[in-house]
Amino acid sequence: MDSESLLNHINELHKDIIINSELITDVPTIEVKPEHWVEVCSSLKKDVKTNLHSISNYGAVDYREKLGGFQLVLTIFSHKHKHRVTVKTLVPAQGDEEPEIDTVTTVWLSADWFEREIIELFGVKFKGHPDPRHLMLDDDWDEGFPLRRGWTGTDFIVKPEM
């Protein structure tokens, strides 16, 4: 199945849920509302035609200024069909808020560390995450969420413009 027909297939599968779908550098990309996040993810894994069993990448983007929230970008792929799909969702947040969304560790085991990284670096909480401790930062880190845009800390020196 080529990317276009895959995208059409997914669009048909979740007709009312998908708010935006496009091909980005030949990867089918869909956007869903945060309340449908886990539902869409688990159906993409289970559906025979998509069968997306592995996580390729899972990260967050700070779009608080542009779109008013954190965008989760999840790229998943299938060893069986050798295709991949990107699923996006926008978790609304303003200022110092720490928004919450359901975890997808229930769908993919390997989402565990990816989500732990997002929790500590972006301050997006995952409801039902089995082990939300710090992964990269020290346990006694208390300077906020460093990957948020505009973050500054005590030992953080901004590179002067040359």
């Binding site: 990269m136 460093p146 953080f156 020196i157």
Partner: peptide, 10 residues
């Protein structure tokens, strides 16, 4: 890792 880095001891 001197500039723009939050985790490295300088």
């Amino acid at each position: 890792f001197y500039y723009d880095c939050y985790s490295v001891l300088k």
